[in-house]
Design a protein around this nucleic acid. Structure first.
Lengths: 332, 332
DNA sequence: ACTGAAAATGTAAACGTTTACATTTAAATT
DNA sequence: AATTTAAATGTAAACGTTTACATTTTCAGT
């Protein structure tokens, strides 16, 4: 594989000039620039990025650390990030924390060893609980949180307004004439789910003659959750609206409601969260909150890129509005 | 940030010895090994992987190139790959081809410049059509295809047996007493979908008194596909079973069938492909073929790792069996 | 205590770039 | 034509490791 020295020799130039053709082309005369590019073509040469990174201290690579890559939210965010970064000449290193603080630390340390230029992080559940922020604040690489943020907001972050989103969805259910609402909450270790719960509660409190119920930490895979849900809808037959913390939970709730003889949306209106692909394809189609994951990833990537070129100035946080997509499951 | 020289100085040793502590610890006396590790701890040192990569020629990094990261199949495969590789001390570089041959080439070239030790590739639709294999065969980095392979099988690959999977699912539908089957085929530029179609046809041909129909290149987002489907089930009311090329297509078919007044599975039995999370949560629960994406990713990662340590010997191809998960949508 | 082999450590070059600084060449000014 | 200035190119060190080879130390066997 040809290196920069080979090109220099073939052209009768110094390696410095060849290097400049790639890094500061305006500083080399058009004639030699052309000559170099010609031989580069001929010898099928391209700069070795490892050597560049070592010498310049810039690896032109970004680390992305999420709990699990195959989570729909993260996968879609990463998709958009990859597009933004590749267009800017950056590569993406991906790692998973498995919700574990230790694995997260290891990955961050590894990112340091790789001399990455920036890091996008969606923090693990464990760190949200333990709350070890100092480590992140003093992290030597520009760091931007996305999707999951810590309630304290001491670190720059890009995420959607979960509270507002849940508020809107709840308001929508009330406007549909529902008077007895139920929220299927997510894992409360996570700020995003606490915020959704808060938005739900705020919307309920804003209205009189609307009663509310909450099943905390609802997990469709858990038998306990299922039992609690079944018990609740049996006990309180007035429940006529459900806001779930996720689309799968909403789907599962619909399943259980149907088994209990309820009609959707006539007896119970349902809204999910995430606007998964399948929402349009189930019957009835599932109303859901669109988190705009790709938009989130794109924005986060761009803000980090800005930081890398700007240098001066801290990064700010950006809170995106989420949109309620109304479909059959909540329309009556 | 401390480097290996700082450690050497602090210990009164040469850098070579310090390096050996990390790379060939058995070659350094326990006493000095301990001393080194102690100061390493004290100075919070860790080896710079960029420098290691440059000098040794081994970056301890693997490239993964897929059409789109947020595709469920790829996201899950990558999840498993990351786990296997991280455990072995490798990092993952992720890139997307967007189904474009040019972007795929660029990414592969970039992987070369990053001195990656190995590459996992799920080829773009465009390359499947164009069939440019030589470039891949002569690629200077160990390369293993996964999920999507070329029909010719000239390159080592890990993928599921799509034909067998579709065969099994079709057989199952026939065994349920269905006599007029319909296959909703995927994009036929891709081998995986041609194979599924082939499996369907083989199962049908194996039985007499079973008739079959195929809607090629079915896409639930396309109006044409929808019209064709509606027209067909109106025209041919005998259709009592559907094998879709994907779960979303299956879901969509169910939706349209319901609109046409058909009952699932009584009037029409339906089987999807992919065993998406939502399959268990829709009503009726959707029978589907489980592709074991994580198993696929894990196997591919392991085989590539083996190759990297083995050196000698070509990689082989591995074809995994897929499993049919029977649920309510096809049980009668 | 002496020899030889094995174990431990050291020396220094190499990996392929970038970049501060120095030098040469060309263009502009007088 | 001589001088000044700018543009283009060159020189060589540096980035932080690894590693072939050389040297020193240790220790078993006599």
């Amino acid at each position: 594989m040809a290196n920069i020295k080979d090109i220099a020799n073939a052209c009768g130039l110094s390696v410095a000039t060849v290097s400049r053709v790639f890094n500061e082309p305006q500083k080399v005369s058009p004639k030699t620039r052309f000559l170099v590019l010609e031989t580069v073509e001929k010898l099928n040469f391209s700069l070795n990025r490892v050597a560049s990174a070592l010498r310049s201290g810039k690896s032109k690579s970004i680390g992305v650390l999420v709990p699990f890559i195959n989570n729909h939210v993260f996968a879609s965010s990463i998709k958009a990030m990859e597009e933004v970064f590749r267009a800017a000449g950056y590569s993406l290193i991906i790692s998973q924390s498995h919700e574990s603080l230790e694995k997260e630390k290891e990955a961050l340390e590894n990112f340091r060893r790789l001399q990455l230029d920036g890091v996008l992080l969606s923090i693990s559940k464990e760190r949200e609980q333990v709350g070890n922020l100092e480590e992140l604040i003093s992290y030597p690489i520009p760091l931007l949180l996305f999707d999951r943020n810590m309630a304290e907001e001491e670190l720059p972050s890009v995420h959607i307004d979960n509270r507002q989103a849940a508020f809107l969805a709840t308001q929508h259910l009330i406007e549909q004439g529902c008077g007895s609402l139920l929220h299927l909450g997510g894992n409360e270790s996570l700020t995003i789910f606490r915020d959704r719960l808060k938005g739900f509660e705020m919307a309920v409190e804003a209205r009189e003659k609307v009663s509310a119920n909450v099943l905390r930490n609802f997990d469709p895979r858990s038998e306990d959750s299922n039992e609690a849900f079944k018990h609740l809808i049996e006990q309180d037959s007035s429940i006529d609206a459900i806001l779930a913390h996720g689309d799968i939970s909403a789907l599962h709730a619909i399943q259980l409601l149907k088994e209990a003889g309820k009609k959707i949306p006539e007896d119970v209106a349902v809204v999910g969260f995430g606007n998964s692909r399948f929402c349009s394809y189930v019957s009835p189609a599932l109303s859901s909150i669109d988190q705009a994951n790709e938009g989130l990833g794109k924005l986060a990537a761009q803000k980090l890129l800005d930081q890398l070129s700007d240098e001066e100035g801290k990064m700010e946080s950006y809170i995106l509005d989420a949109e309620l997509i109304v479909r059959g499951s909540s329309l009556r």
